[in-house]
Amino acid sequence: MTQKIRCAGFGGQGIVLMGRLIAYSAMVEDKHTTFFPQYGAAMRGGTANCSVIVADCDIAAPTVEEPDVVLIMNGPSLDKFEDTVKPGGWIFYNTSLIDREVKRDDVNVFKVAANEIADEVGSSRSANMVMLGAFVAKLGTIELDTLSTRSLDAQMHGKSERVMELNRKALKRGASLAE
């Protein structure tokens, strides 16, 4: 199994954190993984993306040309990455901020009202966690439990218990969408 994932949205949505959490969880579960962020000049509100590979064998190329899965948090990212997804792959997208349908008919589509659900949980800043929860519960690439315990603790070290609890709740709500 090799799964190539791209997370994309605007700067400030926690796109890089999504990728790091997936990669860290994969490592904890003794899978092979690589994480590569877009780097260089960037700003809050501009576009941001990163790619993660999770595999049960050695990963050669760390570059992702044709992702199996994209986690799309805003409209410009759907425009940019919709065509890159491998036929038969998955598009998870944030319907809170994207008001169009996916044009492709050869991929699986999963809609997540990430910002609205995060608002219900307590803060729209956790929209990325809602999306992650849905992705993990739907495809089982990594365990939700790893993500919401060891990975959150390691990657968000130093955040208040209130923020951590909010994120755990958002992950669970996202996961419940896929049940």
Binding site: A23, M27, T33, T34, F35, F36, Y39
Partner: peptide, 10 residues
């Protein structure tokens, strides 16, 4: 190169 410098890996 920039990929090796920027990427994360176990």
């Amino acid at each position: 190169d920039g990929i090796l410098g920027q990427m994360m890996e176990p």
